[in-house]
Amino acid sequence: MSALLPGAPGRRSLIAAGLGSALLAALPRRAEAAAPMTGLRPPEWYRTRLGDFEVTVVGDGDLDLGEPAAGFPAHPRDDLTQLLRANFRSTEKLVLPQNCFVVNTGRQMVLFDTGVGYTRPFGPHTGMLLANLRAAGIMPEQIDAVVCSHGHIDHVWGIIGGDGKPNFPNAQVFISRADFDFWTDEQRASAQGWIGTFVQGARRNLLPVRDRLAFVEDGKEVVPGVIAVSAPGHTVGHTAFMVQSGNAKAMFIGDLAHHEVIMLRRPQIEFAFDTDSKQSAQSRLRVLRMLAQERIGVLSYHFAFPGIGHVAAEGEGFAWYPLPWGVAL
Rank of each mutant, 00 (worst) to 15 (best):
D274L: 01
D274F: 02
T275K: 01
T275P: 00
T275V: 00
T275W: 03
D276L: 00
D276M: 00
S277Y: 03
K278Y: 00
K278W: 01
K278C: 00
K278R: 09
Q279T: 01
S280F: 03
S280W: 03
S280T: 02
A281W: 04
A281T: 01
Q282E: 14
Q282L: 12
Q282C: 02
Q282S: 06
Q282H: 04
Q282P: 01
S283V: 10
S283N: 06
S283L: 01
S283C: 09
R284I: 05
R286W: 09
R286Y: 06
V287A: 07
V287M: 10
V287K: 03
L288C: 01
L288Q: 05
L288F: 10
L288R: 11
L288Y: 09
L288K: 10
R289M: 05
R289D: 14
R289G: 12
R289T: 14
M290Q: 13
M290N: 05
M290S: 09
L291P: 03
L291S: 07
L291H: 12
L291M: 10
A292H: 09
Q293W: 01
E294Q: 15
E294N: 15
E294Y: 11
E294D: 15
E294V: 02
R295G: 06
R295K: 15
R295Q: 15
R295S: 11
I296W: 04
I296K: 07
G297I: 04
G297F: 12
G297L: 02
G297M: 07
G297T: 08
V298I: 12
V298S: 05
V298K: 07
V298Q: 10
V298T: 08
L299F: 11
L299W: 06
S300R: 06
S300Q: 05
S300Y: 04
H302M: 09
F303N: 04
F303I: 02
F303Q: 04
F303T: 04
F303H: 04
F303G: 04
F303C: 07
A304T: 07
F305Q: 00
F305W: 09
P306F: 06
P306K: 05
G307A: 10
G307D: 02
I308R: 10
I308H: 06
I308K: 07
G309I: 07
G309K: 08
H310K: 15
H310P: 04
H310M: 13
H310V: 05
V311N: 05
V311E: 05
V311C: 04
V311Y: 08
V311F: 06
A312C: 09
A312Y: 13
A313H: 08
A313G: 06
A313R: 13
E314S: 14
G315P: 04
G315E: 10
G315L: 11
E316D: 14
E316L: 09
E316S: 10
E316V: 11
G317T: 11
F318V: 14
F318Y: 14
F318R: 13
F318Q: 12
A319K: 15
A319Q: 13
A319N: 12
W320L: 15
W320H: 14
W320Q: 14
Y321C: 13
P322M: 13
P322R: 12
P322F: 11
P322V: 11
